[in-house]
Write a protein that binds this DNA or RNA. Structure first.
Length: 234
DNA sequence: TAAATTTGACCATT
DNA sequence: AATGGTCAAATTTA
């Protein structure tokens, strides 16, 4: 089971990060579907961590209609300052995981217009889009000693052991060097799965080497989990 | 049994 | 026609 999940993780990364041939993508897609079914059978036995991990905040911006929009990539999509009520779920083309739609629990009785979309990107990372601000009263906030986790996260397929919230790809070769179990990569060789990399200062502590030959095609890339600083533009 | 979630239908936009 | 956002009845959960 662990092995299956591991493979799924690698395959998902390959699909998301692209830049391989259509034939390989198709093969990966088929394998991914099979594996996700197996992995999905043990869903709902893991809760999101309460502790806040670092997250990638995209600067707040106001869209064309002057509506507050904020996006972030995080391993903990459900903040505990507000309560959310799920009102929809969709399969989005090109996405492996479903997208879930939430509105503030107090949208009806208090007219709070805050909404949230949660798009799972990898087994442990979520792209969260907030629109609108909470206008609901403080009655929705929680006490400090309340350690229960918001149950509205139950749709999440799986949250793997905590990793820093970014997943990167770089071409293997001489663009990086190894020093005492850490890899250093030139930032202009890095691609992210979420957007254009603006700047980076980081090291890697886990590498998923995917430089194998599948279907006669060499796949020369690695997917890494790292720590450090990243700036990403969407 | 009230509240939250699931899920296919419905609708707007492109 | 395809896609993504929302509705709401059915179902599940606490």
């Amino acid at each position: 089971m662990e092995h299956a999940f591991d493979l799924t993780k690698k395959l998902q990364s390959l699909i998301e990060l692209g830049s391989c041939s259509d034939r390989l993508k198709e093969l990966v897609r088929v394998l991914k579907d099979d594996l996700l079914q197996i992995v999905g059978s043990r869903k709902n036995d893991v809760k999101p961590q309460k502790k806040c991990m670092a997250s990638l905040d995209v600067p707040i911006r106001i869209d064309r209609r002057r509506i507050y929009v904020r996006r972030e990539i995080t391993a903990t999509p459900f903040d505990h300052d507000h309560q959310w009520r799920k009102y929809g779920e969709k399969n989005i083309t090109g996405c492996i995981f479903t997208r879930s739609y939430y509105r503030c629990t107090y949208s009806e009785d208090q007219g709070c217009t805050a909404k949230m979309q949660v798009q799972q990107q990898t087994p442990s990372l979520f792209l969260v889009t907030h629109t609108g601000r909470h206008t609901c009263k403080a009655s929705s906030s929680r006490t400090d000693d309340d350690d229960t986790v918001n149950s509205s996260a139950s749709h999440i397929t799986e949250i793997t052991p905590p990793v820093e919230p970014f997943l990167l790809r770089f071409d293997s070769g001489d663009q990086y060097k190894m020093e005492e179990n850490k890899s250093y990569v030139r930032k202009d060789m890095i691609q992210t799965s979420f957007g254009k990399l603006e700047s980076a200062d980081l090291t890697f502590h886990e590498s998923i080497d995917s430089s194998s030959t599948i279907g006669g095609i060499d796949s020369l890339s690695s997917v890494c989990v790292g720590h450090g600083f990243l700036s990403i533009r969407f």
